[in-house]
């Protein structure tokens, strides 16, 4: 079974990769990608069942925070039922999205601002080295440079230092990191294609 899954996965990978270079494989590539999208949709349902079973288990064992698990399950079932009856495009369902989900995510984003500020303040205590100092000084310069002041942009910082850091230093560094990530992604993909890494059906 393991050999069979590996052969199927490697063959699918080669066909999809081949579709980017050889027109003869394009039809097969599109077909396999469509299957993958359908399977991903089915996986979403499996993911939801997994979520339900984890939280049901928590409630059954009366673990710490099981009240939140109960709240999650009630909300999940109610939203699912209403969406099935009213359809997802109904005005009530849009209110659920724009009145509950979006504000909750926005408030988490708000919390993030405080968390990041707190992390920056504690950075030197956690790791007092040259890179931390450069990180904090750069962040401070950029914040000062982009601050809205009554008389306009901060002279030099806002007009020269800030843009130079973001357009030259940061952009160069970011491209370097992204090239590294791309090379890592390439070799990881090749390992999966060779069957050296098999995140499906065991190793």
């Amino acid at each position: 079974m393991r050999i069979f899954t590996a052969v199927v996965a490697i063959a699918a990978g080669i066909l999809i990769l081949g579709g980017y270079f050889f027109p003869a494989f394009e039809g097969m590539q599109a077909l396999l990608l469509n299957w993958a999208v359908i399977l991903a949709g089915a996986a979403a349902l499996v993911g939801i069942f997994n979520l339900v079973s984890v939280h049901t288990d928590k409630i059954r064992r009366q673990e710490k925070g099981s009240v939140y698990s109960a709240l999650l399950l009630i909300s999940l079932v109610a939203t699912f039922l209403f969406a099935m009856i009213l359809r997802p495009n109904h005005a009530t369902m849009k209110i659920v999205l724009s009145g509950i989900i979006i504000p909750v995510e926005a408030s988490l984003m708000g919390l993030l601002t405080i968390s990041l500020l707190y992390a920056a303040v504690r950075l030197l205590r956690r790791r007092a080295d040259l890179t931390s100092i450069i990180f904090l000084v750069t962040a401070a310069l950029l914040i000062l440079g982009s601050a809205t002041l009554p008389f306009g942009n901060m002279p030099v910082l806002g007009t020269f230092v800030g843009p130079w850091i973001t357009q030259v230093l940061a952009l160069g560094g970011a491209r370097g990191i992204l090239i590294g990530v791309a090379l890592g992604t390439l070799t990881t993909g090749l390992r999966v294609l060779f069957g050296a890494d098999r995140p499906y059906g065991g190793n």
Binding site: A120, T188, R191, F194
Partner: peptide, 29 residues
């Protein structure tokens, strides 16, 4: 980087397998 004691930067993310002894293919990559 700002909020943890040790973070992995860039392609170091892809080195975890090699450092945990996941096999020759990880070191080769």
């Amino acid at each position: 980087f700002a909020s943890t004691q040790d973070s992995l930067i860039g392609e170091e993310l892809f080195a975890t397998g090699a450092y945990l002894g996941a096999g020759a293919s990880h070191v080769a990559s």
